Simulated scan of single mutants.
Amino acid sequence: MSELLQRYGVFLNVENPDNDPRDALRQTVRTGVEAEQMGFHDVWVAEHHYSPFAIGSALTVLLSHIAALTSTIRLGSGASLLALNDPLRVAEDIAALDLLSGGRIEFGVARGGPFPEQYRPSGIQSADVARERMHEALGLIRRLWSEPQTHFDGRFFRYEGVAVYPRPLQRPMPVWLASLGGDSLRIAAEHGYGLMATPSSDLGQIAQQVADERARRGAFPFAIARFFHCGDDSRRAIEHGVAAVRAYPRLMGVRFPPGKLPPMFSPDATEAVILANAIIGDPGQCVARAKELGERLGPHRLLLKPATHDAHEARASLARFACAAGLI
């Protein structure tokens, strides 16, 4: 499968199961660096707050470390939680990262996902408000990167004659919405944004949305993250990967609204349901599954989210896939 049809990337949380944050941060950076050596095209790092398990709160700090130790791999914010952050500071940080990395940043943004504990310290009352705040902040940031001075009078943000520096190297900056709900599809189409699907999203639903959006919009950038585990022994890999997916909602503290629970996170989800929405198995099975996604989704970036908390095993799993897929 050609690179134009399917690009391979790595999607990383900073997970801290052993209560050793220093090592968790260092291991995440190392995995991002080694992803370039394995031939992956992108590495995306998630942002989470107020969790002792998911400690990737300093997104731009992490990406700057990976940027300093790499030279070609694209660096994605997966995603910057604009509803929880000062948009002026995000604009400055992402611009500086883009300059320091030689124009390798992919600016992914999100409202904050099914983690209501993240909203409370910021005084955000609901996921809908967080989504509105995200879209407004993104519109402000894009203007800050292009206008000599910005006058902005929004619902959440108001500025009179503000200018931020530096400005990004890339003109325009690639922007991705990690959201396929609410007004996100319309806003993405109006502004030419890419769309991202999360690791737990239902493939059948996503495939239909992508097909419908391409029918309306034509070609557009699309990325999908999938839980991933690749082992030498198929049965052991499947047992490990499926168990990790089942444990993920509890460890992350996810809380989906009624009727929104992804099928793979259902307490009675079968192994078949989980495997249908993930990339799990031996190297041959994983590559075959990736190719099936290419045929079903069309051009996209496939982002592999390791389904293990052992960073060494995660890198070994990625290396097995990279070898089998001909990336190395």
Rank of each mutant, 00 (worst) to 15 (best):
Q6C: 08
R7E: 15
V10D: 09
F11A: 09
L12C: 08
P17D: 13
D20N: 14
D23C: 05
L25H: 10
L25Y: 15
L25Q: 07
T28H: 01
V29N: 03
R30A: 14
R30N: 12
E34Q: 13
M38E: 15
E47W: 02
S51L: 09
F53L: 01
T60G: 01
L63F: 13
S64G: 12
H65S: 13
A68W: 11
T72C: 04
R74F: 08
S77H: 13
L81E: 07
L82S: 05
D86A: 08
L88F: 09
A95P: 12
A96Q: 13
L97A: 03
D98L: 06
L100G: 00
R104K: 07
G108W: 13
P116T: 12
Q118R: 07
R120K: 14
I124C: 06
S126P: 05
A127F: 12
E136C: 06
L138V: 13
G139V: 02
P148W: 14
H151V: 11
R155P: 07
F157G: 02
A163G: 04
Y165A: 08
R171G: 03
P174A: 01
S184G: 07
S184C: 09
R186C: 03
S200P: 09
L203I: 14
G204P: 09
R214C: 11
R214P: 11
R217M: 06
R217P: 10
P221S: 01
I224P: 00
R226G: 11
R226M: 13
G231N: 08
D232P: 04
I238H: 03
E239S: 05
G241Q: 05
G241D: 04
M264W: 06
A278Q: 01
G284V: 10
G284Y: 02
C286D: 06
A288P: 02
A290K: 01
L293C: 10
R296P: 10
P299A: 09
S317W: 09
S317V: 11
